[in-house]
Every structure is written in C-alpha cells, then in structure tokens.
C-alpha cells in the first residue's frame, strides 16, 4: 500500500528534510492520490501541521476538491496557486489560496510561501511543490535550479518538511538530475508499491 509506506517514510525523516517524491507517469492518478492521502490527510491529522501546497500542475481549486474528499480541514492547508492566472481561471478563487500570476514568477512563489509560514507558524510545517516538471515547463533550468536551491535551503532553516513532486518519464532526466542536487532523499512511489 504506497500510501502507508509514504506516510511511514515521511514520519521518520528528520526536521528540515527535503524529499523528491517520484510518481510514475503511467500510474500517475493512483500515485498522486496516495501522496495526497499520506501528506494532507495522514501526516496532517497526526501532527496538526499546516501544509502549504504550491499548485503549478493543477489549479488549487482542483487540489482542494481532492483534499475535501479526504476530509482535510480548510485551516490545515493553504495554497500558493501559480497556474490559475495563466489558465484564466479567476472565478475559482479560494479563501485559503494566494494567487501568483505566473509560474515564472519564482521569487513571488518564494515570498508567498514565506508569507504563509509566518501566517501559520508551526514547528514543523510541510511544503508541497507540485510539481518540478510543471515548473520546468515554464522556467529555464538555470533559473529553476537557483530557485530550488534557495527555497529548499530556506525551508531547511525553518525546519519545514519539503516535498517536491516529480513525474518520472523519459523527458524528465534533466529535472531529476537537478532535483538530486538539492533534496536529501527520493521516495519512488512505484518502488514502494512493489
């Protein structure tokens, strides 16, 4: 059961860890839902942490609808939505989301995370970046490397647990290399399920 295994791995990580969570493109929906279950529901309900979810792949409204299905309380999750503006989806604005105009405004994403960390202080917050592949579509590799390096180091300093979602496919080799430089470990969801 990948969800239980993911949860177990996350619980044993030291404070301030940064983890790449690799989802298999062929089983994306199952893997993604298992990760949401393990992080938003299980980890959240056990520790009462506040999760900051950076939505770049799908709009926050979509992720929030999944979180609601998992009974995640609204006060335990905030979104930094960097994709809705680009998709002209302004009407879906959530009260627990802050909107960045573009996934290329990487500094603004950093600042919104910082804002939410200050707004909802917790000794061990969780920050989910969904996903590095989506960020790579919109940003040159050098800029993305710099962003991840600064962001993850800052989050480490704040003892936050950072999960960077990554979809493995043939095109993602450079992204994976980049990610390996900045994370402490990788959770390969496909391997956990075996």
């Amino acid at each position: 059961m990948p969800q239980a295994d993911i949860g177990e791995r996350l619980r044993t990580l030291p404070a301030g860890s940064a983890v790449a969570v690799k989802l298999d493109a062929r089983e994306y929906a199952d893997h993604y839902f298992a990760v949401l279950n393990a992080t938003l529901r299980d980890l959240g309900s056990e520790t009462g942490v506040h999760t900051i979810y950076v939505a770049v792949t799908s709009p926050a409204a979509f992720v929030w609808s999944l979180a609601q299905a998992l009974d995640v309380p609204a006060d335990r999750i905030s979104f930094v939505d960097a994709i809705s503006h680009l998709m002209m989806r302004f009407s879906d604005a959530l009260p627990n989301a802050t909107y960045v105009e573009s996934p290329r405004a990487l500094e603004e994403i950093m600042l919104r995370i910082e804002y939410l960390l200050r707004r909802f202080p917790h000794p061990r917050s969780v920050v989910v970046i969904d996903s590095v592949n989506s960020l790579a579509i919109h940003n040159p590799p050098e800029l993305l490397s710099e962003f991840l390096h600064i962001l993850i180091n800052n989050l480490k300093g704040r003892q936050a647990l950072t999960l960077v979602l990554e979809t493995s496919d043939e095109q993602a080799a450079s992204v994976e290399q980049l990610l390996n430089l900045v994370v402490d470990e990788t959770i390969d969801v496909a391997r956990l399920g075996r």
Partner: peptide, 20 residues
C-alpha cells in the same frame, strides 16, 4: 531583491538570475 507588499508587511526574496 524582489519585493512583495503583504498584510504582514514587506517581504523580500533574492532576485534570481539563472546564471545569466
């Protein structure tokens, strides 16, 4: 530094250069 005006005050982040 990139500047953001927020309800909790001004926040700053390093301006990313991306090596160029």
């Amino acid at each position: 530094y990139v500047l953001e005006l927020t309800p909790i005050g001004i926040l700053l982040a390093p301006h990313l250069k991306g090596g160029r």
